[in-house]
Simulated scan of single mutants.
Amino acid sequence: MKKNGLTILILMVSIVSYAQNSMEHILHEIESNNTTLLSLQKQVEAHKLGNKSGIYLPNPEVEYTHLWGTPIEIGNESTFAITQSMDFPTAYGHRNKISNMQNQNLDLLYSSERINLLLQAKQLIINLTYYNALSKDYENRIKIAEEIAESYQRMFDEGKIDILERNQVYMDFLTCINEKEKIDIERKSLLNELKTLNGGKEIEYESTVFILSPLPANFNEWYLKAESMSPILQYLTKQIEISKQQLKLNKALSLPKLSAGYVDERILGQKLQGVTIGVSIPLWENKNSVKQAKADIVYNETTLEDNKIQYYIKLQNLFIKSVDLQKTALKYRQALSTYNSVPILRKALEAGEITLLNYLMQIENYYDAYNNMLEVERDYALAEAELSAIAL
């Protein structure tokens, strides 16, 4: 008995390991083939280039003027000038830092979208697992119902039962077939959704085993790690840094702008040349820009705190839900394993120890319990998948 138990345990571990590798393979394939992610990657690259524009000195300005004198005796005049204007020097350092942080935030937004998409794919796989398990179970139900229907048809032909009993068994058989067809329609729909996420490439997944990660032993300790890994919270934290850097930039832009250049002027055979230096007086152009930057800092800090609270409550609820569903699923699995009366009911029916109506009622109760168990296991897997999505 111990040897058989060990064999079953090894077989179960092998099935779970295979299913897990299969799911990871599908998620990796979807990440590589998904057209939305590929498009988003190109968009991120374009926006990164956009963030790197406008952070350098403006183009130098070159000016040439030629004036013809009238009358001719007064001669002609020509002027050549080249001028370079610039913001206060510290502004360029601030712009460069802002550009780098904005590009980092683009990567975080991409990471967030990637996690959301892979979570969607994982949820589809979990639902597919549920319908795979149902479909496989209904194959057994149809086989049993068909055997009973054939047996009752023979008894009807021999005059041992009436037409009502035969029809009742046949309707049970037909119901099982119809349910199996409905289940397979759902399976095909889920496979098509996965195909769409996989860039139009077919995906096969026949596993009936839910893949679950162990729940954290201490939620608060686990949450601190999850919070530090969240791309959205990292993004909002970086937005605060950007707004603080923007405040420094706006202060620098409120300082005088500088310009310097070279001028060459020629008139009546004489040549004048020299340098030109200019300073703008900051009066109106950046009015209220510093106040706006300070307001943005407060807004981003408030947004981060609000999102942290919502994120904590969301994960806490998922954790509590997962713990409860895990307990319920385990109870169902143990009960159905211990009290599986399907073979006993079949023998009792064939021996005439119970009526057909009694058999159908009791077998229906067992099937309902089995369906409920699969639903609870699916809900548990879905809740756990969302809880651990940060690790995708």
Rank of each mutant, 00 (worst) to 15 (best):
L117N: 05
A91Q: 00
E301N: 07
R95G: 01
K251V: 12
S151Q: 10
D264W: 07
A46I: 08
R95N: 09
S207G: 05
I313Q: 14
L224D: 05
Q239W: 03
F80A: 00
E186V: 09
K122S: 08
H28G: 10
K244N: 13
Q84P: 05
D157N: 12
L108S: 00
W222V: 04
A121N: 00
L330A: 15
R141C: 02
N127F: 08
E186Y: 03
E63W: 04
A260R: 02
R154A: 15
I277A: 13
D306I: 14
T70A: 11
K225Q: 13
D157Y: 00
G274I: 01
L11M: 13
E31D: 10
M155D: 04
T355V: 08
K3M: 14
E181I: 14
L11W: 12
E146K: 13
K248Q: 12
L191N: 05
I82G: 00
E350F: 06
E158H: 01
S289C: 05
Q123R: 14
Q84E: 07
D296R: 01
I320G: 03
K321R: 11
I161Q: 06
A369L: 13
A381C: 02
L356A: 01
N365T: 05
G269A: 07
V323Y: 06
G159H: 05
A226G: 07
F210I: 10
M101K: 06
R95I: 07
K331M: 12
V290W: 10
E165N: 10
Q273Y: 04
M12W: 07
S78G: 00
Y312C: 08
S189C: 08
R346M: 15
E146T: 14
I354F: 05
S78F: 05
L212R: 11
R333I: 12
L38S: 11
T90R: 11
E384V: 15
N51A: 07
G261I: 00
K2Y: 05
Q334V: 15
Q123H: 12
N358M: 09
P231E: 09
L106W: 03
L57Q: 02
R95D: 04
S322Y: 06
E186S: 10
D306L: 13
P282E: 03
P343L: 02
L249W: 04
T303N: 07
L349D: 01
E63C: 01
L108Q: 06
K180D: 14
A295I: 00
L336F: 00
N140F: 11
S280Y: 04
M1P: 11
Y223F: 15
K308Q: 15
N140C: 01
T196D: 09
N178W: 07
N220A: 12
A121H: 01
V298S: 06
